[in-house]
């Protein structure tokens, strides 16, 4: 199912962030949304996800969605694997989760509380949670933010491999991420 945004308008007070935005995000393709800071990329993503109601316009999207939010939105007091199981239930065994963590450079972190992780590790845990969830559309808000170049490359490869054939909308301001991940790019 495509994600269809029709004539979306959104303003915060006098600040008009989205003005008649329309686009069809094709099923099975990765669309990158680019633009300068403050241009409304995250607002658009929130509207597409249904977190934020538009002032006018319509969005149709699949029922089952997954996301990496602007902030990680992990449960700090839970372990990394508990954060993943919170979303996936018992679909993955402990061993399977540990294997996926290893692929994203989080080997041995399954029983660590999220509050004990560094910023980059939290970001990877949030990304892994989103990728392991059951979804028909995935929304990524600067998913590789805070990762060093070496880690970023391997995590991007992991992400690309695991989103192949899925409907993904990714917000970024990094041209390199965009070229690596996206089938289509739109500028705000």
């Amino acid at each position: 199912m495509d994600i269809v945004a029709s004539d979306i308008c959104k303003a915060f007070g006098n600040n008009e962030v989205l003005n008649g935005f329309s686009h069809v995000f094709r099923e099975g393709s990765v669309t990158a949304v680019m633009g300068a800071s403050g241009c409304g990329k995250s607002t658009l993503l929130s509207v597409l996800m249904g977190i934020l109601a538009p002032d006018s316009g319509r969005v149709t999207r699949p029922e089952r969605i997954s996301a990496v939010f602007q902030e990680n939105r992990l449960c700090e007091n839970l372990t990394v694997s508990a954060n993943i199981r919170l979303v996936t239930g018992k679909r993955y065994s402990r061993r399977e989760i540990a294997a996926e963590l290893e692929k994203t450079g989080l080997a041995g972190c399954e029983d660590k509380a999220v509050r004990e992780l560094s910023g980059g590790m939290k970001r990877r845990a949030a990304l892994l949670r989103a990728l392991l969830a059951e979804y028909d559309a995935l929304f990524l808000d600067e998913p590789f933010k805070g990762l060093d170049e070496g880690t970023k490359r391997s995590v991007m490869e992991y992400c690309k491999e695991n989103t192949r054939g899925k409907t993904v909308v990714m917000v970024t301001h990094d041209r390199g991420e965009c070229e690596f991940m996206a089938d289509e790019t739109i500028e705000l």
């Binding site: 969605i65 996301a67 939010f69 939105r73 449960c75 508990a82």
Partner: peptide, 18 residues
């Protein structure tokens, strides 16, 4: 985190505990 739980459709009991 409430919004996160809604986005991921986390069931009520798991949501309460986690």
């Amino acid at each position: 985190l409430k919004t996160m739980a809604e986005i991921f459709h986390i069931p009520p009991w798991r949501r309460f505990v986690g």
